[in-house]
Design a protein around this nucleic acid. Structure first.
Length: 277
DNA sequence: CTCCAGGGAG
DNA sequence: CTCCCCGGAG
């Protein structure tokens, strides 16, 4: 290899950095597709620090896909409470039932068909559990590639294609983790420590990173406690704990929350009774 | 107050 | 495309 391509140099540099600085996370110690799927669903819009303990508790309670497939919706919701976005728990259980019946899809395209599994999660499970050479492009991954390759406002399809080109065929799992770590610790959304970045020499934006603007500080900015999400969360938490429905949120708001929760299959309404599914 | 490993319905 | 879903740490 007398004349390595720029991409190869980038890959080598970042993987070397990852080998030395990788965050030690519970789901990185396994290639069990079930454990990987559990972690990826939990990590959807939810921070690493908050997922870690819940991930380990979940695997202790339901060690494999068949155990989870046999659980009731109420069981998984009770275990999920506090993680947020409770519909994820139901989708994860549905995944377990599909896989218990049909087996694991072979690749990212197949995984994409599982409930609650979108482009990112499908690619992540494929790369981390099956070693498929695919880019799992979450916000961190997208931001880093966009900056390193100077893609600016390029359409998502262009970014996805470039991200896919960059995946080193021999270490797709480490590559995806490395980009997430770099985006989480150095190449942040609102700040970038370019001098400390391992790939600064190969980065088109080094020292000149353009940061995304604040999400428009205007607008009423409603308090979280005034949102339907808040009431929905309170209802699920109450039912999971065996408590009465929250009585301090107002009849109209409670009814609206219950209707939405029932629509999403998160509660069952039996006349005046409300319970977990 | 902001920040954060997405997915899905309309 | 827009909007909705959740919660805790810093």
């Amino acid at each position: 290899m007398t004349n390595p391509s720029p991409d190869a140099a980038l890959q080598d540099t970042l993987l070397r950095w990852y080998d030395a600085h990788a965050r030690d996370l519970p789901w990185r110690r396994t290639r069990d597709p079930y454990a990987v799927l559990v972690s990826e669903i939990m990590l959807q819009q939810t921070q690493v620090a908050r997922v870690a303990p819940r991930f380990e508790a979940w695997l202790e309670r339901w060690p494999d896909i068949h155990a989870l497939a046999a659980a009731t919706p109420a069981d998984v919701l009770r275990e999920w409470v506090g993680l947020g976005y409770n519909r994820r728990a139901l989708r994860l259980r549905e995944c377990a039932q599909v896989v218990a019946r049909d087996g694991w899809p072979r690749d990212a395209a197949g995984l994409r068909g599982l409930p609650g599994v979108g482009p990112y999660t499908a690619a992540a499970v494929a790369a981390f559990a099956f070693g498929e050479v695919v880019a799992a492009v979450d916000v961190n991954h997208a931001r880093v590639v966009s900056r390193v390759c100077a893609l600016g406002d390029a359409p998502p399809r262009v970014l996805a294609a470039r991200a896919q080109e960059l995946v080193p065929p021999d270490r797709p799992d480490a590559w995806n983790h490395a980009l997430m770590d770099l985006g989480a610790t150095i190449c942040r959304a609102r700040s970038a420590d370019c001098p400390a970045c391992p790939v600064r020499a190969a980065c088109a934006s080094a020292g000149a990173v353009r940061f995304a603007p604040r999400p428009a500080a205007g607008r009423p900015a409603v308090r979280f406690e005034d949102t339907d999400r808040y009431v929905r969360g309170r209802v699920i938490a109450a039912l999971a704990a065996g408590d009465a429905l929250p009585g301090d949120v107002g009849e109209e708001r409670l009814e609206r929350a219950l209707a939405g929760l029932a629509q999403d299959g998160l509660v069952v309404r039996d006349g005046r009774e409300v319970r977990l599914p």
